[in-house]
Design a protein around this nucleic acid. Structure first.
Lengths: 252, 252
DNA sequence: AAAAACACTTGATCAAGCTCAATACAAATT
DNA sequence: AATTTGTATTGAGCTTGATCAAGTGTTTTT
């Protein structure tokens, strides 16, 4: 009896309907019954450790994955050992969407820290979404959102100055942590300076100098991975071009 | 009778099943019957002229659109009158996918020349795709492809030098024209130097200088919008980093 | 605890590509 | 044909951010 209780308790604990991330994730907008049908195809495996690959470029697409705890970077490795970081993912975010087109991953994904994920076998998901309009709708929305986010990133890399990029980066994490119930002004970044620079199209040294400068200007306090944002309004001004201070915009 | 013939002839002419772009477009992989069901929700309106908006940032999402002839740029306008060009679209390409998330366009689209489109009301498409797994599959694929393309663009803007960017741009058009049955080495670019620069994250002057340099080096011949690629192999080398010639990569 | 490996910071220098400015060319208008 | 307007090219100089280099601090390995 005791044993039975434990088992059923664990079953409840890991179900979509009890997941605090459900509103950020695939189940959003689903009825309790639909959520249970979705739940039935979700697999929850052992956690990944820092540096583990969730998948590699070229791997066949088996499953989409949702981060449930920890964080992940996706990146495209290049011949010479370099890489382009495409994004950093927090709990509730779905990864692997790029792989649907050719049933094969076009980027790699690595855990930045100990990370747990839900795996959703894509073929099952596709089938299920055929008979579940609200799930199909949510899939379309999530795919579309990814496209919109990429567009913002294109603007960042195409037009913004180094300081605009870092400020944008920091406020993006601030908002995302806030949405997940964490502090918007006090958090740990799980990625290295190198990875931040790579993501933002900047050299490590530039990122380091900017952190120092932002701290000197009283915008934030930073110690290693621990960041405290002290002046959100001014950071926001920087993100939006900083018309006052800087004379030079990058080419309009 | 004559009248009837004319009408039915025109009906046939514009149907998906007779469209040379069908394999690039939504109908790809659909059975003839499914194609007809899709066809029944497609609307074909008057063509747009150079400079006309297909839609504007903030517009409600009514329809996805497929270019059937001409070309289109999508871009995000910024407060100060500037813009970030997100992409250039050729016949067979679907635009508006970014708008699905919030049922509202996050970018604007403008015709670069006289341009015809098929409009596909999204709500009808979504409904239809619920009862047509192959259409749903094709939608997932197209959305996923867009994500993959954006990722490539992130690498271009994050890592590549000016000359790598222009070479990549030219070869991308080369391939896309080829796929549509046009010359891969002799074509007209419908966008201005300014728009190319904006798209590639470069100043107009840099684009102009690069065209001149590429011509001096015998890689291509360019006169205004008319481009003839003379040395595809060398252009390809440039795209992939050009290990030989250049000493400086942008930060690895 | 020492050593090695790694990550981050700071400084000095350099160059890719931007800005400014002038000119050339093409298309549209009168 | 001449004027206007817009687009593209070319030149000169400057700025941002990269590269190179050295040093500091942190984590992991031995």
């Amino acid at each position: 009896m005791t044993n039975r209780n434990v088992v059923s308790f664990e079953n409840i604990k890991v179900a979509c309907k009890n997941c605090s991330l459900a509103t950020l994730c695939l189940p959003m907008g689903l009825s309790p019954e639909d959520m249970e049908r979705l739940d039935s195809i979700v697999k929850r495996g052992r956690p990944f450790h820092r540096g583990d690959h969730l998948f590699r470029e070229g791997d066949n697409l088996h499953s989409l994955r949702v981060i449930t705890s920890g964080s992940v970077k996706t990146f495209t490795p290049s011949e010479d050992g370099g890489e382009q970081v495409l994004s950093f993912h927090l709990p509730g975010e779905l990864i692997g969407l790029d792989a649907i087109q050719n049933e094969s991953h076009t980027c790699s994904a690595k855990a930045l820290e100990t990370t747990a994920v839900c795996e959703i076998p894509f073929h099952n998901l596709e089938e299920l979404s055929s008979s579940m309009p609200s799930l199909q709708h949510q899939m379309y929305r999530l795919l579309s959102r990814e496209i919109g986010q990429d567009s913002e990133m294109l603007t960042l890399l195409g037009k913004k100055s180094a300081e605009e990029r870092l400020a944008t980066f920091l406020l993006s994490f601030s908002e995302r942590f806030k949405k997940r119930g964490f502090s918007a002004t006090d958090f740990f970044l799980s990625m290295s300076r190198h990875e931040i620079g790579n993501y933002l199209g900047l050299a490590v040294e530039t990122v380091s100098r900017l952190f120092t400068r932002f701290q000197d200007e009283g915008l934030l306090h930073v110690e290693r991975k621990h960041v405290q944002l002290l002046d959100l309004p001014r950071l926001t001004t920087i993100v939006h071009g900083n018309e006052n201070g800087r004379s030079h915009q990058r080419h309009v």
